[in-house]
Every structure is written in C-alpha cells, then in structure tokens.
Nucleic acid binder design. Sequence first.
DNA 1: TGACAAACCACACATTTGTGTGGTATATCT
DNA 2: AGATATACCACACAAATGTGTGGTTTGTCA
Lengths: 224, 224
Amino acid sequence: MGMKNKPYLTHSTAPERHCSVSTLSKVEGLTPKQEKVLNFIRKRIGERLPPTIREIAGELGFKSTGTVRDYLKALQQKGLVRRMNNKSRALELTERASCNKIPIIGTIMAGKPNLAYEEIQGYVDVDNLFLGRLGFDDVFALRIKGDSMIDAGILDGDVAIIKKQPYAENNDIVAALLNDNEVTLKRLARKGNKYHLEAANPNYPPIFEEFKIIGKLMTVIRKY
Amino acid sequence: MGMKNKPYLTHSTAPERHCSVSTLSKVEGLTPKQEKVLNFIRKRIGERLPPTIREIAGELGFKSTGTVRDYLKALQQKGLVRRMNNKSRALELTERASCNKIPIIGTIMAGKPNLAYEEIQGYVDVDNLFLGRLGFDDVFALRIKGDSMIDAGILDGDVAIIKKQPYAENNDIVAALLNDNEVTLKRLARKGNKYHLEAANPNYPPIFEEFKIIGKLMTVIRKY
DNA sequence: TGACAAACCACACATTTGTGTGGTATATCT
DNA sequence: AGATATACCACACAAATGTGTGGTTTGTCA
C-alpha cells in the first residue's frame, strides 16, 4: 500500500542513491514502466538492500510476482540488471545501469533550454574512483600541507589517498615517515642504488635522511 | 566450502568494501571471532548484497545457523549491526561499524611491525566526497585534455566533477561551452563588466569569444 | 489478418531463509 | 561452587522468496 519512498531500513545511514537518469529510457530503449522498475531497484540497492520480487510488486502496485519477473527478464535482456538464481534479493545493476556513476562528457550539445550529452566517454564510478580494487583496509588519506609537490599538481589542502605498502618503485609518489614521525608526500628517487625523497618544487631540497615508506599515492582529490 | 574471498556476484562491479579496522576489536570490545563475522558482513554489504545467516555460517565455517544468530545478537547489543525481523539479508551496519570512510591521518606512529594512526583528523566519506549534498543528476564529469590549467594544479587526464549551473562568479573555474560545441575548463575572469575565460597557463591566451557557462568546478580527481 | 511485444494476473510448488528450542564445552569472575 | 559470557551444535518449523505454467488484454508492425 502507500509506502512510496519510505526508506526500507528505518535507521538507514545509507545515502540516498536513487537517481533517475532521465535520458536512460531513450538511450537504452526502456519503456517508462521498465524505467520505473529499474529506478526502484536502483533506489533500494542504494539503500544497501536490494528488493525481493514481491517488494518490487508491492512498490509498483503489481499483484503478481510473475509481472515483476517479466520486467526483470526484460531488464536482463537489455543488459541493465544481473541476477542469480534461487537467491533472495540477488539483483545487481550492470555498469550501464548503475547509478553510482557520473558520466564523463566529451562534447556537449547546447539544446535550447537544456544540455544534451553528445558524447559520453565513460563513467566515473563514485565508489571505485578512490580505491580501484582496493579495500578500505588498504588505504588511508593524507591532507596535503604546503606546496612541496606543487609541480606535480598536488596543492595545499588536497586529499591524497594512499595505498599502504612498505615499498614502492623509483619515481612513485610515496607517503614516507621521517624520523620525527612526520608523514610527508614526496617522489621516490634513486641515486646510484640508494633511494631518497624529492619534492616537486625547486624551492625544496631533496631529503636524504632516513625514511620509511608507508604507502604509495593512488589518488588525489581536491574540492573547490 | 572453501569459497573464501570469492565474490558473491560473479560479474560484480561493486567495489570491495571489506575493511577490517584492525583496532576496532579493542575500541569496540569485540572478540576476534566477532570481528571476523563483522568483517564478512562488511565485505558483503560492500558488494551490495548482505549475507544470509547461512551464508555467514558457510563463510566462517559454522555448522549451525544458531551460532550465527548468537554472533548477530552480540553485534547488535554492541551497537554495530541493525537487523529487521523476518527479512532476508536485512543486515545493516551502524555508523560506528560502517566502513565507508577513510581516515585522514595527521601524524603516524611507527610501531615496530605496523603503523598506528596517531592523529585522525577526520574521515573521507567515499560516498559524499564528490557530491557533497548534490545529487547524481546535478553533476557530470569532464576528463581534462591538455595542460591549459596546469598552474591551477589541474593536469592532463584529471577528472573534473562539474556542478551543472548556467552562471558562476568571477574567478570560479567553470566548464564552458564554446561556439564549436567544445567544452573547456577555464577560469572565469572579468574585465570591466564583461566576462571572459582565462587559462591557468601563460602559454594560453585568454578567450574572448562567445561562450556559455554550463557548470562550475567542484572537485578534481587524479588517479595514479 | 497474424505475429509479436508489453503489460498484466492467478496459483501451485520448491527452495531459501529466519526463528525457536534445547543442547555441550570452555573459560572467567565472584 | 555458581553465575556469566563465549563459542559452538542439531533439528524442526514457519515465513519469505524464487520459479514455473498458463492465462488475458492491448497495441504495433508487417
């Protein structure tokens, strides 16, 4: 009955990930109804608990589970949804249907009132962007202080996502622990067969003192 | 049986969110076994499909569902997990147990074998970092081509997250549409009471031709 | 007209899944 | 010694859930 938009888990801390990609119906050849089903699935996956077939039926007002299965079959055929047999809630969005992604635009057509994406080169996956295939265990973040890496495009205040590892290769940008227990982000450089640290800023001298590599720079994020 | 670490959904595009915060057991008063259960739940929620009780039992090697229920009860009492009755897979992590955040480290103590976070300045919330309070519909991404913004620390290949808006303020970095339908990222500048676009690179001249602002730079992301 | 897809429904059945009861063993604390 | 918590197990039952079969209606396209 009228439970529209009620979060499934009462105390959910999950972000609202529901996103109706308004152009998807045309792009992907979805009917409006199919898009509604897909959007509900999106929403619930965003809330961290995919729906059961009967929950979809309830939300969309269908009286038969068979109806939902027809929709799921259609969405599967169109490559937007994947399922596992005989597993409850085993619904997954494909790359194309995922709503955790922000389109990367190449060219944009200026339609009169709105914009139309002309060329979508790909998608930024919000979840994977930092981590790639890493787990949360494997990384930490540093907030950059100072301008010692400015020539590498790493500015004061940027957040650096560091993959924990006690080694790195020549020329990698690494988070290193100095003797005073300070962490610094520098480029790993080799002179002969000894490694040292170099800033990306001519005003800073290379560091030849003892250091310990604690991780390797994976991602830089800057907010404006 | 030995299905350790096998992704649950074969073609899963979901990130591996499994994160055993190694200090959690002490902080939260968890036993090692309880932490293992929690970490498996974390992992599977990260893969977008919370586990059933029997799946937990299978993973951890328990032969009885009752065992798992004992663990869930303990985790619930310790405020790390929430559940719904009679709903399959209805497992949710609380704020404290959630693993969507990456700690931002200030100083780091070098313990003998491992590192200990000395000063956690805050957390990077993976879900909200790009968007803040924006929805997925309000943004798009541009992949930076060229070095015209290099002095602003925006390099070739970086991904720029743009908030859609047809206006901006002086000195904002904006995504602008030029006459040839090309999108470009430049700094909005004012001369008298006319706006034009400026690169952040002395090799590029300012752009005085007609343009249309399509959005404002919110975030820059660079992967290594 | 016929073929086809979309969009529904009913209902039975099998499997999955959560729940409940009642155990055993071990260690710790009082 | 008794109370308590952890750490398991077996088994039965009920509820939730996925599956399968077989329909009806409507519109579109050839």
